[in-house]
Write a protein that binds this DNA or RNA. Structure first.
Length: 576
RNA sequence: GCACCGAUGGUCUAGCGGCUAUGACUUGAGCCUUCCAAGCUCAAAACCCGGGUUCAAAUCCCGGUCGGUGCACCA
C-alpha cells in the first residue's frame, strides 16, 4: 500500500521537484537533483529564511568555500571526532562501535588508533556480543569527504560537514564589520557534505545537502533578548527533558517556558520563536511541529541548552529538522587555540572600574646589563609575584632552574590605581541550524492532499499541493478557456504583464480547462486566471483559487498588481 | 557495511524460457468544446547494468547499481 512518502515522492519525481541524481548512469545513493519546480521552491524557502534572519534580524549572510583546510576541522573536532571506529563480526556480520567494546578495558578509547583498538580486541579475546563470533579488523570511518588542495597531495582539504565553521573562521573580520558591538550574527546558506554510511529515506539523509545556519555571538552575561516581549506570548509544543521522561509534551508560551527555566534563557527562546514562525510560514503544519530538548547525555558537553525542531512525517515519525543550541564559547576557544589568535570582543563597562593593583618596577639600568639575555624573563617573573614575595631583603626567583637573588632596592614596589573601561571577552554562540532539504520534504508532505471533488454529481479525484502562495514555484497560470485565437491573444498579453511584475506565470492552452486546473493544482499553483468570451466584452477575467476552487470575476485593469498582492499579502477570501 | 525483498514507456502495471512485449493514465499534434482530468483522429515512449546457462532469457543463475525494510551509524 502506497504511503504518503511514496505518493509525495512519485509526484515530486513526475512533476519535476526531485530527481535522483545521475539517473542516466544508474544513480548514486545520497544525492538528489532539484528539478525545475523543486529548485524554484527551494529558492523561495531559502529566501523566506533570508527575510527573517538576514533582513529582519540583521544577521548578514556570508559565503565561504565549501572546501576547508585541515586546521579548521582539527579545531572543530571533525578530523578526530567525526569518525567512528567500526568492527564487524565475521560470523553474523553485525557491525559494532569498536570503542564501545573496549570501554571497560581502557580509560580513553577515543585516543587510540584503529590498529591499537584491533590489538586490544584480540589480546582481550573480545567476541561478538550477539553471536560470540570472532570480530574483524577495526577500521575508521570518517564522515568527511577528503581531498587534496593543489598538486602533489601535500595539503589536505575537506568538504565542509557544516557551514558553521565559515562564520567562526571569519570571526575577527565579522567583529570589525559589526564595529565591535555584541550581539551580532552571521549566516550562511549553502551546501554541506557528509559521507553517510547508508543514506536512505529520500531527501531526509543526503551526502550533499543544504544547510541554513546562523551563528549569533552574544555577551555571555547578557542572554536576554530585546525583542523577547514580541514573541513571549507565542504558544508552541515543547518536549522538554522532563517531558521526555514522562512521555508528555506540553503546549506552553515561550514566556512561561523561560520563566520556569525549561528553556535556558530568553535568547534561545527568541530563536525558537523565529524558527517556529519560519516553519509555519513555509508551510509546515503547526500540529506536526514540536520542539524537543536534547537530553543531558545527548547534548554536547559544552552546550548550555539545545532544542531541535522536529517535524512529524507520515513514514519517518518525528524528523529532526532544525537544531538550536547555545554552544557557549566552545567554538571560538577551539579556533583561538588552533590558530593561536585571540578571538574576543572588547566590551566596555557601563562605568569604568577603579582598580588598585600592585605595580612592580624593576631598575632595568642595573638588571639589564647584569642578566643580559635573561633580563626579559626575570621582569615578567617579577611582575607575576605576589606582594608577600616582594617584602624581604632579597627577592628570590627561579629562572630556567637557576636560582636568582635580586636586592630589594633594585625593584620598586608600589600600588597603582587605574581606571579600567572594559575587558576582552569570548562571546557565547547561539546557533540555529536548519536542514533545508528536510524542510522541503516535510512541507511537500504537509501540503499534499488527495480529495474527491464533486462535479455535476460525479466524484472526481483531485491531487492538490496546498503550498503557501509565497513558496509555490509557479505562482499563477493563465488559461484561455478555449483554444481560439481571439482568446489566446489577450491571454498572452496577461501572461506578459504578470511576468513583468516578477510573477512566475505558466501559460497553458492545451486540453480541456478542467485538465489544466488539475495540472496546476498538483504543483500547487495558487491562482489561475481564465480568459473567456466575456473578457472580450467587458475586460474582466476569472481568478480561481486553488484551495477552494472558487472563482471571482475581476477587472483586467491592474490584474498583475492584484495577483501580486494576493500572493504576498492578502487571502483570496478577503479579496473577493 | 551486512541481511532480506524488489527493479518492464514519464507514472502505475501484465508477462513467469519461444511475440512485433500487455493495458491504463500521462504527454505531443489536430478536431470538438463557454469553466473543473472521462469525446474523436493520429503520434511518441519501456524490459536497470555486466556476465553465465540455453537453439532461444524481460523471464533461470551469479555479480554490480539503485530503491525499500531490519541491524549498525546519524557531533
Amino acid at each position: 500500500m502506497a504511503d504518503k512518502y511514496e505518493k509525495v515522492l512519485e509526484l515530486a519525481k513526475r512533476r519535476g521537484f526531485l530527481w535522483n541524481s545521475f539517473e542516466l548512469y544508474g544513480g548514486t545513493a545520497g544525492f538528489y537533483d532539484y528539478g525545475p519546480l523543486g529548485a524554484m521552491l527551494k529558492r523561495r524557502v531559502e529566501n523566506i529564511w533570508r527575510d527573517i534572519f538576514v533582513i529582519n534580524e540583521g544577521y548578514y549572510e556570508i559565503e565561504s568555500p565549501t572546501i576547508g583546510i585541515e586546521d579548521i576541522f582539527i579545531a572543530s573536532g571533525h578530523v578526530g571526532g567525526f569518525s567512528d571506529p567500526l568492527t564487524e563480526c565475521q560470523e553474523c556480520h553485525e557491525a559494532f562501535r569498536a570503542d564501545h567494546l573496549i570501554q571497560d578495558i581502557t580509560d580513553n578509547p577515543d585516543t587510540l588508533s584503529a590498529d591499537e583498538v584491533s590489538g586490544l580486541i584480540k589480546s582481550n579475546n573480545i567476541i561478538c556480543p550477539e553471536c560470540k563470533g570472532a570480530l574483524g579488523d577495526v577500521y575508521e570511518f570518517n564522515l568527511m569527504f577528503k581531498t587534496n588542495i593543489g598538486p602533489g597531495g601535500k595539503r589536505a582539504g575537506y568538504l565542509r560537514p557544516e557551514t558553521a565553521q565559515g562564520m567562526f573562521v571569519d570571526f575577527p573580520r565579522l567583529v570589525k564589520f559589526y564595529r565591535d558591538h555584541l550581539p551580532f550574527g552571521a549566516t550562511q546558506i549553502g551546501k554541506t557534505y557528509r559521507n553517510e554510511i547508508s543514506p536512505r529515506q529520500g531527501v531526509i539523509r543526503l551526502r550533499e545537502f543544504t544547510q541554513a545556519e546562523a551563528e549569533i555571538f552574544i555577551d555571555p552575561r547578557v542572554k536576554t533578548h530585546p525583542g523577547f516581549s514580541e514573541v513571549s506570548d507565542i504558544k508552541l509544543t515543547l518536549f522538554s527533558q522532563e517531558g521526555q521522561d514522562t512521555g508528555k509534551s506540553e503546549i506552553i508560551t515561550l514566556g512561561e517556558a523561560v520563566q520556569k527555566g525549561t528553556i535556558a534563557h530568553e535568547f534561545l527562546a527568541y530563536c525558537i520563536a523565529r524558527t517556529h514562525q519560519y516553519l509555519l510560514r513555509v508551510g509546515i503544519s503547526p500540529d506536526k511541529l514540536r520542539f524537543r530538548q536534547h537530553m543531558k547525555d545527548e547534548m554536547a558537553h559544552y552546550a548550555a541548552d539545545c532544542w531541535d525542531a522536529e517535524i512529524l512525517s507520515d513514514r519517518f515519525g518525528w524528523v529532526e529538522t532544525v537544531g538550536i543550541a547555545d554552544r557557549t564559547d566552545y567554538d571560538l576557544k577551539a579556533h583561538a587555540r588552533q590558530s593561536e589568535t585571540e578571538l574576543t570582543v572588547y566590551v566596555p563597562y557601563d562605568k569604568p572600574k577603579t582598580v588598585t593593583r600592585l605595580a612592580v618596577k624593576p631598575d632595568m639600568g642595573v638588571l639589564g646589563p647584569r642578566f643580559k639575555g635573561k633580563a626579559g624573563k626575570i621582569v615578567s617573573a617579577l611582575k607575576d609575584l605576589k606582594l608577600k614575595d616582594l617584602t624581604g631583603d632579597f627577592i628570590e626567583l627561579t629562572i630556567e632552574d637557576e636560582k636568582i637573588r635580586i636586592e630589594k632596592e633594585l625593584v620598586d614596589v608600589g600600588s597603582v590605581t587605574e581606571e579600567i573601561h572594559g575587558e576582552n571577552i569570548v562571546p557565547h554562540v547561539i546557533e540555529p541550524s536548519f536542514g533545508i532539504d528536510r524542510i522541503i520534504y516535510s512541507l511537500l508532505e504537509h501540503a499534499y492532499f488527495e480529495e474527491e471533488v464533486e462535479v455535476e454529481g460525479k466524484k472526481e479525484p483531485r491531487i492538490v499541493l496546498r503550498l503557501p502562495p509565497e513558496v509555490a514555484p509557479v505562482q499563477a497560470a493563465v488559461l484561455p478557456l478555449l483554444t481560439k485565437e481571439e482568446l489566446i491573444k489577450p491571454a498572452r498579453e496577461i501572461t506578459e504583464s504578470l511576468r513583468k511584475k516578477g510573477i512566475l506565470t505558466a501559460y497553458d492552452d492545451s486540453g480541456t480547462i478542467g485538465r489544466r486546473y488539475r495540472r496546476n493544482d498538483e504543483i500547487g499553483t495558487p491562482y489561475s486566471i481564465t480568459i473567456d468570451y466575456q473578457t472580450l466584452d467587458d475586460c474582466t477575467v476569472t481568478i480561481r483559487d486553488r484551495d477552494t476552487m472558487k472563482q471571482v470575476r475581476a477587472p483586467l485593469e491592474g490584474i498583475a498588481g492584484n495577483i501580486y498582492d494576493l500572493l504576498y499579502s492578502g487571502s483570496f477570501r478577503e479579496w473577493c
